[in-house]
Structures are given as C-alpha cells and as structure tokens.
Amino acid sequence: MAVAHGHDDHHHGELHNPMEPTRQEQIVMNRFGLWLFCFSEVFLFMALLAARFYLWRDPVQGALRPELEQGPALIFTCVLLVSSWFMNRAEVASANEDMKTFNQSLAMTFVMGLIFLLGVIFYEWGLGLAHPHILPTDGAFGAVFFAMTGMHAIHVITGLIFVAIVWRNGNLGHYSREDHWGVEACAIYWHYVDLVWIFFYPAIYLIGIGVHIPGH
C-alpha cells in the first residue's frame, strides 16, 4: 500500500504533524465528507425540482410538461442506469484486485455515460438537429428543461472525468484491497448522479399534461 508515510519524501527542515490522521482514518473522513457533499447537492437538485413544479403548472389543469419524444429519452435513461451496474462491478473488481474486470467495467461505464451525455446534448437539446424539440427561450418550459438537464449533464461530465482518472490511476497500480478509496468515491458519485436522474426523468418526461410547444 503506497501511503505517503512509507516514503521518505519529507524534505529537510519540513515540519511533520505528529497527530496526522492515518490513511485509514482519512478514508473514513473522506467517505463521510463525500456523503455530506451528496446530501448538500440534494438541495441543489431539489431547488430545480421545486422550480419545475412551481412553474410548469396551470391554475386549472394542474401540472404541465412539454410534449417531448418519449422513446429516445427512455433509452438514454436505461443506458445511464445500466452504467451504474458496471460502476459497481468495477468497484468490486478493484477491491478484489481483478484488473481485467476493473478495466472492462470502467470502460463500459464510461461509454454508457458518454452515450447518455451525447444523447442529451445532440438529441434532447437538438444541437445540430435542424429542428430542435425545445429551445431555452420557450417560456418556462425551455428555461427549466435546460436548467435541469444542463445541471445534470454537468454532473455527468464531472463523473466521466472522474471515471477516466480512476481508470488511469488504477492502471498505474494505485489501488489495492485495503485502499481503493478513489474507486469507491467515483462509484458513490456515479450512483448519485444516476439517482438524481431517476427523479428528474419522470419530473420532466412523465408527470403532468403534455403541452405541444408551437414552432417545433
């Protein structure tokens, strides 16, 4: 296990903290910190959901939603959810020091996450489509749709970067049975981003009466 303690990398005259937490203690704190961060982000996504339910409604009809194509959205959603399974597999593999499964699973996670991301950007947002389904300027529909999917997409992008870093560091041999915190953190984050989508997807695509946006 390659922990800083083991190396003699303290330069001359540099101070050493006699009470520095051990690597294992630090991992326990990291884990709690990451869960707290996830909890903190709950408030971010809740605020977006609140905006959605506040704005997408009609005094008489109740909840509204923009009429969007259901098929592709469902497919992208499934792809993202399945990627979570591969992420979990990668984590288990790194705990077992099984590099082959680790590499395969991470690659699958990355590809599936990328498919989701590209699906959102090029299909749902319609970048590059001649006739996008919805534009940011389409009233509260456009505003909230792009805010929710955009905020989620930023998290997917961070997740993809995270996966790439973990893949590289894994192949540099940085993870072991005792200490594969990097992989674990990546997995928690990835599952969390998927979980958020489980709330966002029905809120955007399923709940409420569909309204056709003119001009699309």
């Binding site: 009609d58 923009p66 300027t137 509260a140 529909f141 505003a143 805010a147 056709h212 946006i213 001009g215």
Partner: peptide, 18 residues
C-alpha cells in the same frame, strides 16, 4: 431563459406554455 418574467410571446401563450 424565462424563469422569472410573467410575460411570454402571444404564440407560446396561446399554446398554453407557462
């Protein structure tokens, strides 16, 4: 992006877009 202005184009208004 219109989050906060209670004004919207007549076309969108007629279609029932909030």
């Amino acid at each position: 992006m219109n989050f906060f202005t209670p004004v919207i184009s007549p076309e969108l208004l007629a279609a029932g877009v909030p």
